[in-house]
Design a protein around this nucleic acid. Structure first.
Lengths: 178, 178
DNA sequence: TTCAAAATTTAGACAAATCTAAAAATATGT
DNA sequence: ACATATTTTTAGATTTGTCTAAATTTTGAA
């Protein structure tokens, strides 16, 4: 898989998390910050490689193989994020961009060893679950802060928006994981 | 710089270490494991970017800017090699391939922090010097083992051939750095 | 010194990933 | 139901990096 293909697979996976069966060309173009025509081209390539199911005008969804690939890339991305925060003292708003690059490094041994070095973490610095080698990951009961009752109690376990600006906003108000 | 451009710059730098002023198209094609015509194309691009001096049929050599870029990539490559050996328990014959990928990650902060994490090493797992941020590096007096007198004394400080097969051969005969 | 061999460059083609503009298919509102 | 708006696809172009084959330049040997 090329880096671009990996990025598309990941994009489709993320859009599918909303429970969507089929992802539209336009939605994917939005996610990938590219043009719908480019998406159509790429989808055809992915379809030929058996990573997605695609019928013209009907949208796209990942095959089992594609889902597995997506989870592998996400595993790598999130492990690198943990590494950057735990070992190199990056802050949680700095890690995404670098992890976007590191996630494409090809070496199973590298990732397995990194996983061990970090003591096999279950969640990344934004509270998102890290899939294991088989693609399994822990889920947690989560409620949006906006749906919590006034004077209610809870523990911050993740952020929905992991943009640098929002994370800095949280820092300013001393909100952090845990 | 693209990854391919970085690889060419690095290739030119390595060939220049033999004391060569001007690197021939064929020599570079050999180093890069590509065709001379591809080299000519790439050299033109690098020349337009001010990374190399080039006159048709006259060979190529790095500009000051090009040399600096080469040293940056080499610094990254060798720091990652140290990381792989020291933190992830890779053996010295396993690191090259992965470091070839990691050297292209773009993040100055990442490299500086990695340098600190590794206690600012001066040499990589093959005994090659690691340039600092300014491109400076330590040199050491070295003699080829083949030029040493029988019963002479010395300390192994590096290998000339860092192919996996040769490094494994050294392991078998219990020859290692230091 | 001359001419063939070797090295280098050019020309033209291709694949990946993208774009714009135009065409085709689908969806929607009254 | 049907005309229009939206979505999606196609066609053709561009960039990067590569290739083969042909042309050109340099080198070196008789």
């Amino acid at each position: 898989m090329t880096q671009s293909e990996e990025n598309y697979i990941k994009g489709i996976y993320h859009l599918s998390q909303g429970g969507k069966m089929s992802i539209s060309t336009n939605a994917l173009a939005g996610q990938m910050e590219t043009k719908p025509s480019s998406v159509t081209d790429m989808i055809k390539r992915l379809s030929e490689k058996g990573l997605v199911h695609y019928k013209k005008y009907q949208g796209v969804h990942l095959t089992e193989k594609g889902t597995h690939q997506a989870l592998t890339v996400i595993r790598k991305h999130r492990l690198w994020e943990v590494f950057l925060v735990e070992k190199l003292d990056f802050t949680w708003d700095e890690v995404h961009e670098v992890a976007e690059q590191l996630e494409h490094i090809e070496s199973e041994k590298l990732i397995d060893r990194l996983d061990d070095l970090l003591d096999n973490p279950d969640f990344d610095p934004h509270g998102d679950p890290i899939p294991d080698k088989q693609g399994r990951f822990k889920t947690r009961e989560k409620k949006l802060l906006s749906t919590m009752p006034v004077s209610g109690h809870g523990i911050c376990v993740g952020v929905k928006d992991s943009s640098s600006s929002f994370l800095k906003f949280l820092d300013k108000h001393h909100i952090e994981l845990g």
